[in-house]
């Protein structure tokens, strides 16, 4: 499993709640009621020991990467301790010689454009499916859903040909345009748009609102938590893309995104290993920070309910 928007048709979820994906919820959320049990102090110590061992095992690869990124080549050992004097040289090397600055900038451009595009096209499509009556509505909705079942591998052979004319700076278009619409996003937003109370719609139309005004002034603000969740999914999906950027930028190194750029770094020469570690941290950090920041907002969205009556 990975955070893969296309694969997450069902983040609407087994829990049955519409709205923010369930996976961000527990991070920093208030402690929920676990089974009440009066554990003796011996058992409690045992539990902490077990939890700590597991946490250590999970964190170890990241810890080793961080420590090694701060070490000089001779300090890199199988059982690294935090270096007494952190060596930041690997970071400056990864940033400039490893082209991480370029890769991160490319990733940021592509990810922001895709996220914004997907949010806008998904709001538009979801509004049409949720509030408008038109011929072929059901059929078109099914067509939307079928895009979820077509993996990228089935379309890349032709898509590579389609975007071939876009070279130079147009490579950004090649990276962005194919991801500008999301069947998953439209599906997710439609579910929460459908929960906007009918009375609200009638009242808005009595006040002389047209569809566009109703959409932008009422529906979008009311469903902001769901839109934020969808946007976060789009963001992660775009940031984590690997296969498509590889295909589009294998001959255009200046336009590589960070995920594919990392592979280039890892394939570098032996004395660069510290630089690879530093590059990995640089690629990992923005998303870790982002998830820390946004998890709280999403949790709030979850608990407040997607739609306030």
């Amino acid at each position: 499993m990975s955070v893969d928007p296309a694969g997450m048709v069902g983040s609407v979820g087994p829990v049955g709640s519409v709205g923010p994906p369930t996976w961000v919820a527990p991070v920093g959320s208030a402690a929920p009621g676990g089974p009440r049990e009066s554990a003796g102090s011996g058992r409690r110590v045992l539990r902490y020991a077990l939890l700590t061992v597991l946490a250590g095992l999970i964190l170890f690869p990241v810890y080793a990467t961080v420590v090694n990124s701060l070490s000089t080549p001779t300090e890199i050992t199988p059982f690294p301790w935090f270096p007494a004097s952190p060596n930041w040289e690997n970071y400056s090397k990864a940033w400039s010689q490893g082209h991480l600055s370029k890769y991160l900038l490319n990733s940021a451009i592509v990810t922001i454009a895709i996220t914004a595009g997907q949010v806008v096209t998904a709001i538009m499509a979801a509004y049409a499916f949720a509030f408008l009556r038109f011929p072929l509505r059901r059929l078109l909705f099914v067509v939307f859903l079928t895009t979820l079942m077509i993996p990228a591998e089935v379309t890349i052979l032709q898509n590579v040909k389609t975007v071939r004319p876009w070279d130079g700076d147009l490579t950004y278009l090649a990276l962005i345009v194919p991801s500008l619409a999301s069947g998953f996003g439209a599906f997710l937003l439609r579910q929460s748009f459908l929960q906007v109370p009918k009375e609200l719609r009638e009242a808005a139309f009595l006040d002389g609102y047209g569809h566009l005004r109703f959409m932008t002034r009422i529906v979008v603000p009311l469903t902001r938590p769901a839109i934020a969740a969808m946007g976060l999914f789009a963001f992660l999906g775009a940031w984590n893309q690997y296969l498509w950027p590889l295909l589009v930028t294998s001959d255009a190194p200046e336009y590589r995104t960070v995920q594919y750029g990392l592979k280039q770094l890892a394939g570098g020469s032996l004395d660069q290993i510290g630089v690879t570690y530093a590059g990995t941290v640089l690629a990992f950090l923005p998303i870790a920070v982002l998830l820390m920041v946004f998890s709280k907002q999403l949790v709030r969205g979850l608990t407040a309910g997607a739609v306030k009556g």
Partner: peptide
């Protein structure tokens, strides 16, 4: 809560980041 945060921490990695971590 600290353990929960650690247990969910790998969501911040991508397939590529995880692979490069283990590869190196």
């Amino acid at each position: 809560t600290i353990y929960r945060t650690i247990f969910s921490s790998t969501v911040a990695t991508s397939a590529a980041v995880a692979s490069v971590i283990f590869f190196s």
